[in-house]
Structures are given as structure tokens and as C-alpha cells.
């Protein structure tokens, strides 16, 4: 075993441990702010795994988008909805959690079994290594051109929609008749899905 492979092995083990333990923390910790920061740690460790796989471009994209954008967005959301809530106790919560943990463990066992028993077609063709970034660019403008263009539509639409939903002002009147608009109250007689606005 050379020093290089040993280093790679140690890096892999440390990063995997960070990913798994961090993810457990994200779902188990009671304080949501800690969860959000741990999530950032998981994202960074996943980027480290990508570096081990020789994919520097995707690793950078992962850091920029996941850690820089999504995680920050989640932190903002936590701060915007930061009212301390005393959650109502639910009966059988522990049982429910245990049962779902059992189900998830079963799923994990299934996935592990499939991963271990499948004869993967290894080794594949030699890796491109440093050329990966250039190759991704070639893909984006040749055989993945259509998804690339559609992704731009998706992002434009998501941006507009998110702004429309998150901004405060709504039209107060019906543009055509000038009557007071009754948004959401068109079907007044409907049984509401929710109880009235909480105090």
C-alpha cells in the first residue's frame, strides 16, 4: 500500500463518516439551526467525495450551489419563520419513529444487498481525469443541449414564481370590475382544509 492510496483511503473514510454522522444529526437534532449548519457540513463533505472521484468541476458546483445558495436560503427561511413553537405532543410518537426506522433499515438492507451482489461492469473505460470540465462543456452543448436549454426555462420560471409567491403585495381589486378582490375566498362555502389563523 503506497502513501497515496493510504491517504485516499483515510480521506474517504473520514469524509464518509462526516456525511453519515452529519446526516443523522440533520434529521435527529432538535434545534433546527444546528441541523442547518450540519447540513452545510454534509454538503461540503460530499464535495470532498467528488474531489476524490476526480471531479473538480462538480465539486465546485456543489460548494457554490449547495453550500453557498441552498444552505444559506434554508438558514434565511429558518430565521424568517423563527417563532418558537411548543409542538403539541402526539400519541405513539416513539412507536411511529421506531417503526419508520425499521422500514428505513429494511430499505437500507435491500439497497446494500443489491449494491454488493450486482456484477458491475468494472473496470470501465479509462477516466478522463483533468479533462472532465472540458468534457462536461462539450456534453452541455451537444447531446445534452435540450435539457440545458430547458433548465434555463425552469430557472426563469422558478425565479418568477418564487418572487410572486414570496412578495407581500397582491392586487386589492378586480382589475376589470374594480370590485374588492376576494382572493381565496371565491369558494367561501368550501370546508377549509385548515383551522382559522392561529393567534
Amino acid at each position: 500500500m503506497t502513501i497515496a492510496t493510504t491517504t485516499e483511503l483515510i480521506c474517504f473514510l473520514v469524509l464518509s463518516a462526516v456525511v453519515v454522522i452529519g446526516a443523522l444529526g440533520v434529521v435527529l437534532l432538535s434545534n433546527i439551526v444546528y441541523s442547518a449548519f450540519l447540513l452545510g457540513g454534509v454538503f461540503t463533505a460530499v464535495a470532498g467525495l467528488y474531489l476524490l472521484l476526480n471531479a473538480s468541476f462538480v465539486a465546485m458546483a456543489q460548494i457554490l450551489v449547495y453550500v453557498g445558495a441552498i444552505n444559506v436560503l434554508i438558514l434565511f427561511a429558518i430565521m424568517l419563520v423563527n417563532k418558537r413553537e411548543d409542538l403539541k405532543a402526539i400519541a405513539n410518537l416513539t412507536t411511529r419513529r421506531a417503526v419508520s426506522a425499521g422500514v428505513c433499515a429494511g430499505l437500507l438492507a435491500l439497497l446494500v444487498r443489491v449494491v454488493v451482489t450486482t456484477p458491475w461492469s468494472l473496470p470501465g473505460p479509462p477516466a478522463v481525469g483533468e479533462e472532465a470540465t472540458a468534457r462536461i462543456g462539450e456534453h452541455l452543448f451537444t447531446d445534452y443541449l435540450l435539457p440545458f436549454e430547458v433548465a434555463s426555462v425552469l430557472l426563469l420560471m422558478a425565479m418568477i414564481g418564487a418572487i410572486v409567491l414570496a412578495r407581500r403585495d397582491v392586487l386589492a381589486t378586480d382589475v376589470v370590475t374594480g370590485e374588492v378582490a376576494d382572493q381565496g375566498l371565491i369558494e367561501k362555502a368550501r370546508t377549509p382544509l385548515l383551522m382559522n389563523r392561529a393567534e
Binding site: M157, V164, G184
Partner: peptide, 23 residues
């Protein structure tokens, strides 16, 4: 995947379009 997500994300936005209505 991309076209499925374009459809889905747009559908989420549309179903929440009456934003003053909690339902």
C-alpha cells in the same frame, strides 16, 4: 428528468397561487 421537474415545479407554484388563502 429536466422536463418532469419543469412540469412539477410549475405545478407547485400554480397550486400555491392564491397566496392569501391558507388552503
Amino acid at each position: 428528468f429536466i422536463s418532469l421537474e419543469t412540469l412539477s415545479v410549475a405545478s407547485y407554484l400554480l397550486s400555491g397561487y392564491m397566496k392569501r388563502d391558507a388552503r
